[in-house]
């Protein structure tokens, strides 16, 4: 009997979405306020002196990077917390003893976290509209990218949540790795603005390819070609899936 346990997936998904629902106002107000602050600081104060980048007004130019920045951190945070909490509180016993496969578990947890991330991404996008004119050249691809990023980073967060043994470890990766890489990954500038050897060094930062690709869906223009961006994204996604597959196969930090 290898039927798909849809009731199980739905139960976890609903549980997770309800968890977000309990903090709905802070979860939504935070990205809106942060976005507004970024626009006031970067868009107005600095942007007025920046002129255009790649033929795009600076205020509009930072919108994709801003969405990515928040999506990265939110996805990692929500997905890692979702699986870390039951581990920490001990309620994971129920999941481990339930007739739910590894695939179903990931689908439910990552699906719920990704849902929240996509909603936040869209809210930031809408908020940005209040400050600047920004048009999207490839809306379908942009949405696809948004969803892919949410899923990939939620998978990454899920891995982090299983790996982490303390709240500190849970926060160290997003704070010490992902945030800096995002800032250095061209969230607020074009990497062409950097002098060598920094420009070449930046190309080793995987985040560059993701931000560039997302920006391409907005303006038809990125630091690297869209093909390279999509390949980088697919590679990251595949890596996360492989790690999760390995974790469940070995029971890594879930079972003794």
């Amino acid at each position: 009997m290898t039927r798909f346990n849809r009731h199980g997936v739905w139960a976890i998904y609903r549980f997770e979405v309800n968890r977000f629902g309990r903090t709905v106002w802070t979860s939504l107000a935070t990205p809106v306020i942060t976005t507004a602050l970024y626009f006031i600081v970067f868009g107005s104060a600095i942007g007025s002196r920046m002129g255009e980048l790649d033929g795009v007004d600076y205020g509009a130019f930072i919108v994709p990077g801003l969405i990515m920045l928040t999506m990265f951190t939110e996805s990692i945070f929500n997905a890692s917390f979702g699986i870390y909490m039951p581990k920490w509180a001990g309620t994971i016993y129920e999941l481990l003893s339930a007739p739910v496969s590894a695939f179903e578990t990931v689908l439910a947890y990552v699906g719920a976290a990704a849902t929240k991330s996509v909603i936040i991404g869209l809210i930031i996008f809408a908020t940005a509209h209040l400050f600047v004119d920004v048009t999207v050249e490839h809306p379908v691809l942009m949405l696809l990218f948004l969803v892919m990023i949410a899923v990939t980073f939620c998978l990454f967060g899920f891995i982090l949540g299983i790996w982490a043994k303390s709240f500190e470890q849970l926060q160290v990766i997003p704070m010490l790795v992902v945030m800096p890489l995002t800032f250095l990954g061209g969230a607020f500038y074009s990497i062409d603005m950097l002098p060598e050897p920094w420009r070449t060094a930046t190309l080793f930062n995987p985040i560059v390819y993701l931000i560039s690709g997302f920006r391409w869906t907005f303006f038809g223009e990125g630091d690297v070609s869209i093909g390279v961006s999509l390949a980088a994204m697919a590679g990251f996604l595949a890596l996360c899936l492989a790690v999760i597959w390995w974790m469940f196969r070995t029971g890594y930090r879930l079972k003794s």
Partner: peptide, 12 residues
């Protein structure tokens, strides 16, 4: 309690 029932694959 409702969550547990779903988790174990039973309809509501």
């Amino acid at each position: 309690v409702t969550f547990s029932r779903g988790l174990f694959g039973k309809p509501p």
